[in-house]
Amino acid sequence: MIFLRYILCPVVPIYYLVTWFRNKLYDLGIKKSMSHKLPVICVGNLSTGGTGKTPMIEYLIDLLKKDYRVATLSRGYKRKTEGFQLANKDATAESIGDEPFQFYNKFKEDILVAVDADRNNGIKQLQSIGDVPEVVLLDDAFQHRKVNPGFNILLTTYNNPYFKDIVLPTGNLREPRRGAKRADIIMVTKCPENLSEAERNAILRQIKPKVNQRVFFSSISYSNTVISSTTTKPIKGLSDFTLVTGIANASPLVRFLKEKGLKFEHLNFKDHHEFLEQDILELDKKDFIVTTEKDFMRLKQYETLRDKLFYLPISIVINDAVKINKLIKDFLKTKL
């Protein structure tokens, strides 16, 4: 795969020009971005793969749900439905996608969860329902420029920051680095817990934020327990289990478990893996399975796995949570 990426290096300038030209058309107003009466906060990235969008959306939900009627709007990647879908008691990972299904399972009493590949239509549909939301959180929509969000949060990882990357197909960027200029907040995710001030300053010098941009740093916090559909267990009591991951980058999770001194085999699938019958038959043979919350949403439907399938919750810790919380709430105050 890496060799193929290098072979495709001559395509990089073409991809760069196409995405640059598309963005320029939006910047000049030739292609139209639609603004909405509802405040819209977009969480996205420049690169492909796991930068931590789901934990960031959940952070925003926790921050806002007590004071505002919140809706999340996602594309619903790999779902088996089309058009606008509003999650209800019959929703599944197949009908709305694994990440929206995760939002629904965790926050169904507090928020609305919707999916639509056409984000403008999705926002219009949310405005037409009885209990209209007061704020919409757009998941993974930084490149969806048909919507003009009021507030953009751009995520980039500590180990693979956008400013050291190039565009597809040789690199991982969906668009040129200059796209970061559209962000109001740039969040460097998956940082070491003990990231020094000197390291933060070095990253800031490479990001070179605009006057109106703020840069924050976050790390992953793993729970000390794993959770099943019926019970919880402490991590320290686990032994000889199977770790199942279908996410973009499982390395931080694997590193965390190893640092705990735990012994496990790792079945590593591609991001958003669709578990097939042969996969389930293989998992049936395992005695105890630990997975991510996203993968749990796809696997918990299988009765044979119910008693041995657990997930490890994660959350994010932001270096200056008070400041970012104030920026987001100040934005909403200007719109409501």
Rank of each mutant, 00 (worst) to 15 (best):
residue 30 I to Y: 14
residue 30 I to H: 12
residue 30 I to E: 10
residue 30 I to R: 13
residue 31 K to V: 15
residue 31 K to L: 15
residue 32 K to L: 13
residue 32 K to W: 13
residue 33 S to M: 11
residue 33 S to T: 10
residue 34 M to K: 15
residue 36 H to V: 12
residue 38 L to E: 09
residue 39 P to R: 11
residue 39 P to M: 08
residue 40 V to L: 11
residue 41 I to K: 05
residue 41 I to R: 05
residue 41 I to G: 01
residue 42 C to D: 03
residue 44 G to W: 03
residue 44 G to I: 02
residue 44 G to F: 01
residue 44 G to S: 09
residue 45 N to R: 06
residue 45 N to K: 10
residue 46 L to C: 04
residue 46 L to V: 08
residue 48 T to A: 14
residue 49 G to E: 09
residue 50 G to P: 01
residue 50 G to E: 07
residue 50 G to I: 05
residue 51 T to N: 08
residue 51 T to E: 03
residue 52 G to H: 07
residue 53 K to N: 04
residue 55 P to A: 05
residue 56 M to Y: 09
residue 57 I to N: 00
residue 58 E to R: 02
residue 58 E to I: 06
residue 60 L to F: 08
residue 60 L to H: 04
residue 60 L to C: 08
residue 61 I to T: 04
residue 61 I to P: 00
residue 61 I to Q: 03
residue 61 I to L: 04
residue 63 L to C: 06
residue 64 L to P: 00
residue 64 L to F: 06
residue 64 L to N: 03
residue 65 K to I: 08
residue 65 K to R: 12
residue 66 K to H: 13
residue 66 K to Q: 11
residue 66 K to D: 14
residue 69 R to D: 10
residue 71 A to R: 00
residue 71 A to K: 01
residue 73 L to K: 02
residue 73 L to V: 07
residue 73 L to H: 02
residue 73 L to P: 00
residue 73 L to M: 08
residue 74 S to A: 13
residue 74 S to Q: 05
residue 76 G to N: 07
residue 77 Y to G: 02
residue 79 R to M: 07
residue 79 R to Y: 06
residue 80 K to A: 11
residue 80 K to R: 14
residue 80 K to P: 04
residue 83 G to D: 09
residue 84 F to R: 11
residue 84 F to N: 06
residue 85 Q to W: 11
residue 85 Q to T: 15
residue 86 L to F: 06
residue 87 A to F: 03
residue 88 N to Q: 11
residue 88 N to W: 10
residue 88 N to I: 10
residue 89 K to P: 08
residue 89 K to T: 15
residue 90 D to T: 15
residue 91 A to Q: 04
residue 91 A to I: 10
residue 92 T to C: 05
residue 93 A to N: 07
residue 94 E to Q: 15
residue 94 E to H: 14
residue 94 E to I: 12
residue 94 E to P: 10
residue 95 S to E: 06
residue 95 S to H: 09
residue 96 I to T: 02
residue 99 E to Y: 03
residue 100 P to R: 08
residue 101 F to M: 12
residue 101 F to C: 02
residue 101 F to V: 05
residue 101 F to R: 07
residue 102 Q to N: 10
residue 102 Q to S: 09
residue 103 F to L: 07
residue 104 Y to E: 03
residue 105 N to Q: 15
residue 106 K to F: 05
residue 107 F to N: 04
residue 107 F to C: 03
residue 108 K to T: 09
residue 109 E to P: 08
residue 110 D to H: 13
residue 111 I to T: 04
residue 111 I to F: 00
residue 112 L to N: 11
residue 112 L to E: 12
residue 112 L to D: 12
residue 113 V to N: 00
residue 113 V to L: 04
residue 115 V to D: 00
residue 115 V to A: 01
residue 117 A to L: 12
residue 117 A to V: 14
residue 117 A to D: 15
residue 119 R to Q: 07
residue 121 N to D: 14
residue 122 G to D: 01
residue 122 G to R: 04
residue 122 G to S: 07
residue 122 G to L: 03
residue 123 I to G: 00
residue 124 K to Q: 14
residue 125 Q to S: 14
residue 125 Q to T: 14
residue 126 L to M: 06
